[in-house]
């Protein structure tokens, strides 16, 4: 699965938890989930669980920390998918 495909699956997951519609308008690789999208930190746990279900992967505690920006989340998911192939 390439980066674009991962992002296509990841974006709707993230947008589910954005409470400020304006924040979702311009998501880029550098968009920070907490700071830019104002996602509640409790909902980051939901995003991690959603990602695990959507991509059939298990995200470790250390890997959770790498999901700070959209780009880093995509990269981390991509690496996990490669390892599981």
């Amino acid at each position: 699965m390439d980066k674009a495909e991962i992002l296509t699956k990841l974006e709707p997951i993230i947008k589910t938890y954005i409470t400020q519609p304006d924040a979702a308008a311009s998501i880029t690789d550098d968009t920070h989930l907490l700071r830019d999208l104002k996602i509640n930190s409790a909902h980051l746990i939901d995003i991690v669980l959603d990602v695990e279900a959507a991509f059939s992967i298990t995200i470790t505690d250390d890997e959770v920390e790498k999901m700070d920006t959209v780009g880093n989340a995509v990269a981390m998911i991509g690496q996990k998918l490669i390892k599981t192939e």
Partner: peptide
């Protein structure tokens, strides 16, 4: 939040 204000350290990992 107390730790972050004190040290400037930011992270997201509830198990830390």
């Amino acid at each position: 939040k107390c730790h972050s204000a004190e040290t400037g350290d930011t992270f997201f990992n509830p198990k830390r």
